[in-house]
Design a protein around this nucleic acid. Structure first.
Length: 205
DNA sequence: GAGTGTCT
DNA sequence: TATG
């Protein structure tokens, strides 16, 4: 809707065409053998997230009873995260407009019925860097607001192949996923949605 | 130093 | 169901 980022965010509809999406899903299949999805839990309460997560890149975002943090290894296998696929790195280069490379790529799997409450991405030290995300599979009803939880929000549909950049004004915008619309994509044989989120974590390195 | 939770 |  707003490619110029007047709201601070930039949506690039159809950034990945169907064959690029298929190739990426193929790469993800191998990556997922190395770093399987797991179910994170909320700090303190231990309540499980409905999304399943894994990561690639030098650092991965994790949540457990101790809190949120970035770490270099998978919490269940103890192994380092696999490298970020080339196409995904290319999205950062083409859309991010940032000199330093991404360090973390969070991979979320949303089965139908999964939601993600409104939140800010603020566990990164480098808040000047944008957040770039790619959608694959079923459509998501995405909600985005402002820097305060009480700011008005609006809803947008994220389709398979779309890229979304949260930078500048929108870097700290509250956002979440209200709903996944089952049956809106044939990309993933078992349905659901995969979201890849690229972030720069540290300022130097 | 809690929080991407669940609630209506 | 959509919204906050």
């Amino acid at each position: 809707m707003d490619m110029n980022g007047l709201d601070g965010f930039k949506l690039a509809p159809g950034f990945l065409d169907r064959s690029a999406q298929e190739q990426l899903v193929e790469e993800l299949r191998a990556l997922l053998q190395e770093a399987p999805f797991y179910t994170p839990v909320m700090p303190r309460s231990g309540k499980p997230f409905s999304v399943r997560m894994t990561n690639c890149g030098k650092l991965g975002w994790v949540s457990d009873r101790a809190g949120y943090r970035y770490q270099p290894t998978h919490p269940e296998t103890g192994r380092p995260w696999p490298p970020i696929p080339e196409v995904v790195l290319a999205a950062w280069t083409q859309l991010g407009g940032y000199s330093k490379p991404p360090e973390a790529c969070l991979i979320n799997f949303y089965a139908s019925g999964t939601r993600m409450g409104l939140h800010q991405d603020r566990d990164e030290e480098d808040l000047a860097a944008p957040v770039v995300s790619l959608s694959l599979g079923d459509e998501a009803v995405f909600r985005i607001g402002g820097e305060s939880r009480k700011d008005p929000t609006r809803s947008l549909r994220l389709k398979s192949g779309d890229a979304l950049v949260l930078g500048g004004k929108a870097r700290l915008a509250f956002h979440g996923v209200d709903r996944i619309i089952a049956g809106t994509s044939t990309l993933l044989p078992k349905g659901g949605r995969i979201n890849l989120t690229l972030r720069r974590v540290t300022k130097e390195d």
